[in-house]
Amino acid sequence: MVPFDMHGLGEFLREQRRQARLSLRQLAEAADVSNPYLSQIERGLRKPSAEILQQIAKGLSISAETLYVRAGILDESVREERDGELPGVRDAVLADPELDDQQKQALIQIYDAFRRESAGAAADGPPARPEAPDHGQED
């Protein structure tokens, strides 16, 4: 397990909150976490539980896994192996302040559909070559 870096998590949360253009009070309300507690997390004074991180991630519209990795709850290499995808694709979409929630969800759905399609194609093997039509000629 990755050691907890309270300062790094707090800085990351603060930066994500600023990118989302949320005040501390707005994020606290969106995440259903008290304003003082959220402030302590951002300043590196408190280590939040996985449940609190999930609530904060929801308030920021980012992946909870991103916060789990930052908090040392989840190892990045385990996450990458499990997902089998390039790290950060979903996180980048979810963290983009220029996109609204519907746009983010649409992009993620498209991304997931392409990944499923690619996985299905890989499982089926290479495409079969069409056979030449038989014109009644023998070898």
Rank of each mutant, 00 (worst) to 15 (best):
M1R: 08
P3L: 08
P3N: 09
F4L: 06
F4A: 08
H7T: 14
G8Y: 04
G8E: 02
L9T: 04
L9V: 07
E11H: 11
R14Q: 13
E15P: 09
E15N: 14
E15S: 14
Q16I: 06
Q19W: 14
R21V: 10
R21L: 14
R21W: 11
L22R: 03
L24S: 07
R25E: 14
Q26E: 11
A28T: 04
A28K: 03
E29A: 15
E29C: 13
A31Y: 01
N35D: 13
Y37G: 05
Y37T: 06
L38Y: 05
L38R: 00
S39V: 06
Q40W: 08
E42T: 01
E42I: 05
L45R: 12
L45Y: 10
L45E: 12
R46N: 08
R46K: 12
K47R: 13
K47N: 04
K47A: 02
P48T: 01
A50I: 01
A50R: 02
E51W: 08
I52M: 08
L53H: 05
Q54M: 11
A57N: 01
A57Y: 00
A57K: 00
G59S: 01
G59D: 02
L60Q: 00
S61F: 10
S63G: 06
A64I: 05
E65R: 05
T66H: 06
T66A: 08
V69E: 00
V69F: 00
R70Q: 09
R70L: 06
A71H: 01
G72C: 02
G72Q: 02
I73Y: 02
E76P: 11
S77Q: 10
V78S: 08
V78D: 02
E81S: 11
D83S: 15
L86T: 13
P87V: 06
G88M: 01
G88K: 00
D91R: 00
A92E: 08
A92T: 09
A92M: 09
A92K: 08
V93C: 02
L94G: 05
A95G: 04
D96M: 08
L99C: 04
D101V: 10
D101L: 12
D101Y: 13
L107H: 04
I108G: 04
I108V: 07
Y111Q: 07
D112W: 02
D112H: 07
A113K: 07
R115M: 13
R115H: 09
R115K: 11
R116E: 13
A119Y: 07
A122C: 09
P126I: 09
A128K: 13
A128T: 12
A132E: 13
P133R: 12
P133L: 14
H135M: 15
E138I: 14
